[in-house]
Design a binder for these strands. Structure first.
Lengths: 67, 67
DNA sequence: ACTCAATTGGGTAATTAGGGTG
DNA sequence: CATGTCCTAATTACCCAATTGA
């Protein structure tokens, strides 16, 4: 059985996001607590992050050498 | 909400719910066992979840980034 | 009656949350 | 002010074999 891809956003765990930014998972948690990044909590209290938002944030923080 | 098309409540499998929260299907089972989410049992013992309840739950646990 | 994917159950590692500190 | 590390408690992930669903 399959799920509609449009209806399902891809989510990431704190560890995955932390690895992406090269920071400690705790730091990602702080970002979420500070409202700098949207988060989805599991009923158990763990956080999940939207992959699209993480990528967007990563893009926004990316400073390129001037062309 | 405007109209209820049918009294038919769409049911979701543990795997579908798990994909929505980015967790293991077994974790969804624990939520049901802990009463954190309502569940319907098939005569064979398998669990099914109300699509509307899952969506409401997911929505309530979602927080957007501000600024 | 058969196949095949998914779910169930129990048990054990790995990850995460939260507070306090450097 | 932001990040990293230490701690404990809680939640979640992966292992197995057997049953259920379509």
């Amino acid at each position: 059985m399959t799920i509609a891809p449009e209806a399902t956003e891809r989510l990431m765990t704190p560890g995955e996001v932390a690895a992406m930014f090269r920071v400690d998972p705790k730091t990602v948690t702080r970002w979420a607590a500070a409202g700098r990044i949207g988060s989805i909590r599991t009923p158990g209290g763990h956080r999940r992050f939207r992959e699209s938002e993480v990528r967007t944030l990563l893009d926004g923080l990316t400073s390129e050498a001037h062309a």
